[in-house]
Nucleic acid binder design. Structure first.
Lengths: 356, 356
DNA sequence: CTGAAAGCGCTAACAT
DNA sequence: ATGTTAGCGCTTTCAG
């Protein structure tokens, strides 16, 4: 920078001002031009590390994403990175496991690197990391998952509605005994989709209190298969499954195949997310579409606001999901001949007719 | 740090030495303990930005990955990040498009941030960015894609062998007229898999010079479908397709479906990568498995070496791929009744018998 | 509008 | 083994 100043015949501080868009107005245009020319001639670029040290800012945004189930988070990430880079921010992505201590370390590392803000795609419904970020005064937003209480701004899909759409679709097809393959209840996605499922059942006059439901520990195909096995053996009378997530739904496919049940003839399945390729599996998965990329973009916008006006109130942006009907859902079989517990089926099905 | 020094009753420089693992040996253990206790009591953490400014190093590694086809790159990335973090490095991931200028900007940004090294998952067979990194003296390694000449260390799958395995498998099933859905020839993956395809054909005594082949511009399902349409209409006599990539193979599925051809009855398809979920598509995809995570890990190792001994010669690590047989490949139909150009088929099939 | 000077927090000669 | 000191490259008061 000193060299640029010399070449331009100006002082370094003037060069600094000319180079920084925010302070450029303090410098007379002619000087700016001289500085630019000199900088250009020397192939000079501002040193962001030195600038960071001095200002405490960095034009860097940290993003914490879970290291599994990356199919969903990649578009969030690229959406956010794209939008952020339009505004001069670079992103630094940290893949975190479920180990809470490591999450803190990673976050602290990012903060130590002077990130201007944090996007958390990892939040549980009551997340100590959120408390931490708030205490430290680091502008942060949530994405995909929200907390129980809105302490930070965030953008999520309407998970409650999503699950309801799934149930509505199945009920419309004639299903009355519907099981839920629930996600981890400590995450808002798992929690709200479960609640949406229950509410939708009630809305249709179906028995919600003893609704067939099994929780998967994580959003993986394996855990989905396991939970589906439990669900199917506990309630062989169900004719449809609402899964909290596409990967869980695919796990259900695995379980169904093992048992020798055909989807959708014997059992209908609905997923959630509409991740890539689920239109190509057999049968093509009926699911709830979420625009993850848009979620990432809006999270980026919220974060910028949070950075600019530090005391702005927390806002929750809720994106509308959409039902995508494919081949994994169909009307239930007329006669439930296969069922060993036909009584159970009719028991829960009968009241429905009268109430609906 | 000054405060820590005071509390420990030592000088800042001693504190600095005690805190840094590399210089800790210069300090007597008792002092180290005192420093640690003081730092702990104050909740003090080293400031990486200030350290970077002073040393020119950062314990940061930059990774450039293409922003599409993320299914393949995510495991590379997590594998590399995992291994790197074991050695105290953090990773900063940049998703780059195909715009060459932007690639340079991004790389320069990372270098300006003092990254200790770069992992490039974006390299073309003759990549200006590689030249740039070499000129700048930034320790760098390639992953997944290599250059024509080995200028930097890197780790790739044996793409030539992979394509050969695919052809071998098909020939063994009885196929004689095999088409290739090639990837972008400017990338080593596209180039070498194509070459492997050709060589394997020759090895089996099949006509390699006029082998049916269409190139896809990018590794996407859409481009795969388009290229497959061209391939199928140019050479309706083929009984099998070797795709350079799973996504292209899935695109071929789309094209087949449009035309009303059944896989594997009418046409067999082999993919490349064994990415998640291709075992669930219909039919389950026969493909070449690559351990992307292992690729990431080894790239991390190579990079560390490159950082430690800056003048080490470039090494190329080649990982062995593996054929995974699923449902998308079968013996060709006995009678090629559908074919309009049955002559072409027998023309290339006949010489084979005698040579094999 | 521009120049002068201090200092962000750390490390690495150099000196003791 | 530890203390002293200079300075990495920038920004930002404070003067002029």
């Amino acid at each position: 920078m000193k060299q640029v100043a010399e070449l331009a015949g100006l002082h370094v501080s003037t060069v600094s001002r000319a180079l920084n868009p925010d302070t450029r107005s303090m410098v007379v245009p002619e000087s700016v031009a001289r500085v630019m020319k000199a900088a250009d001639a020397l192939g000079y670029r501002l040193d962001p590390v030195a600038a960071s040290l001095r200002t405490g800012r960095s034009k860097l945004i940290g993003i914490l994403v879970p290291d599994i189930a990356t199919n969903v988070f990649t578009p969030i990430l690229t959406g956010a990175a794209e939008r952020l880079s339009e505004h001069g921010y670079s992103t630094i992505v940290a893949y975190v496991g479920s180990d809470s201590n490591k999450q803190f370390d990673l976050a602290q590392g990012l903060i130590a690197r002077r990130v201007d803000g944090l996007i958390l795609a990892t939040a549980s419904r009551d997340d100590p990391l959120v408390s931490f970020c708030i205490e430290r005064g680091v502008p942060s937003v949530l994405v995909n998952r929200a907390e129980k209480e809105t302490r930070l701004s965030g953008v999520v899909s309407d998970d409650l509605l999503g699950a309801q759409l799934a149930v509505d679709h199945l009920v419309e097809l004639g299903h009355r005994t519907i099981g839920h393959l629930a996600g981890p209840p400590e995450h808002s996605t798992g929690f709200l989709r479960h609640r949406g499922f229950i509410q939708a059942l009630s809305a249709h006059g179906l028995d919600a209190t003893s609704a067939p439901c099994e929780f998967a520990g994580t959003y993986t195909r394996e855990q989905g298969a396991e939970a589906a096995r439990r669900l199917l053996s506990a309630r062989p009378d169900i004719t449809a499954i609402v899964a909290a997530n596409d990967l869980l739904a695919l796990g259900a496919y695995d379980a169904l195949r093992e048992i020798g049940l055909n989807c959708p003839r014997d059992i209908s399945v609905v997923g959630h997310n509409d991740m890539p390729l689920v239109d190509m599996v057999e049968p093509p998965l009926t699911t709830i579409r979420i625009s993850h990329k848009e979620m990432g973009r809006q999270a980026a916008d919220l974060l910028q606001q949070a950075i600019e006006t530090r005391d702005s109130p927390a806002r929750n942006v809720v994106l509308p999901p959409k039902l995508i009907v494919r081949g994994s859902t169909a009307a239930p079989r007329k006669s439930a001949a296969k069922k060993s517990t036909g009584a159970a089926a009719s028991k829960s099905a009968k009241p429905t007719w009268s109430n609906a």
